[in-house]
Amino acid sequence: MIGSARVRLSGWQQAAVALGSAVGALVDPRRADLIAALGETTGKLAFEKVLERMKRSQEGKAILLERPRIISANVGHAWDLPENTFGAAYAKFMGSRNFSPDDRPPVRFLDTEELAYVAMRAREVHDFWHTLFDLPANLLGESALKVIEFQQMHLPMCFMSVIGGSARFNSKQRSLFFEHYLPWALRAGMNCTDLMCIYYERHFDEDLDVVRRKWGIIPAPPLAAKV
């Protein structure tokens, strides 16, 4: 659960956790728990601003009131939806990569239930954004999505992830990212609606192209899957 594992930290303890998580994530970018800890210990102000935006949005307020969780028990019906729908596209993305919506680490280092939920929601909608922007879950795709996430939420962790990801690019990836994906991601992040204020689960049965147009989503250039 969101609140069961939470730990209250002093200022210096937060700084220590942030530094240790940043170093650990650079050494092993697969450590989702370290990336999550870095996001929480450096992102309180950013999450507070997201929370305020959600409170001013009709769908955002509904999300905060109902606090839906993106877990298998709640989104499993997406696998049964027609192929053209947003929900089916999400299910295809998850199934083709053998991902589970239940694999997200809990929120531990934010001190209110509301902020903890916003952080958890941001973590859980990540795969929806992969689906909507048509980005693969490889190094190039994740780095491009972090640019959009930074524009949407202004989380320092997202900026640091882009820096860390680009440092691991080979020459071909570096060229593709800076010539194609970075300009696209900057444009896509500015043009789309406030993605944290969408109650995605209510739109599963809608046509994927329709929701992309409705939310101002510009799909990624079709090169990342080849790298």
Rank of each mutant, 00 (worst) to 15 (best):
S96Y: 12
A88Y: 09
L186T: 08
E52L: 08
E179N: 11
L45F: 06
Q14A: 04
I63K: 07
M94A: 05
W79D: 11
D205L: 02
L155T: 10
E52P: 06
M160Y: 07
N84G: 03
R123V: 07
L19S: 07
D33Q: 05
E142F: 01
G20K: 04
A62W: 07
V23Q: 02
G3V: 09
A89K: 13
P106L: 06
P222C: 02
V7I: 14
A116K: 00
D134L: 09
M120I: 00
N138I: 12
A18R: 03
F159K: 10
D28Y: 12
F204D: 06
P105D: 05
V211S: 02
R69F: 11
Q58F: 01
F86K: 00
L186D: 05
P101K: 08
D103M: 13
L34S: 09
A167P: 00
G164I: 05
T85Y: 03
S100Q: 09
A62K: 12
R104Q: 15
A119G: 10
S171N: 14
T131E: 02
H126C: 06
L19R: 02
G11Y: 05
N84Q: 04
A224L: 07
K44C: 04
C158Y: 05
A32C: 04
G76I: 12
N84K: 07
G164P: 08
G216V: 09
R30Q: 14
L34Y: 06
I217D: 03
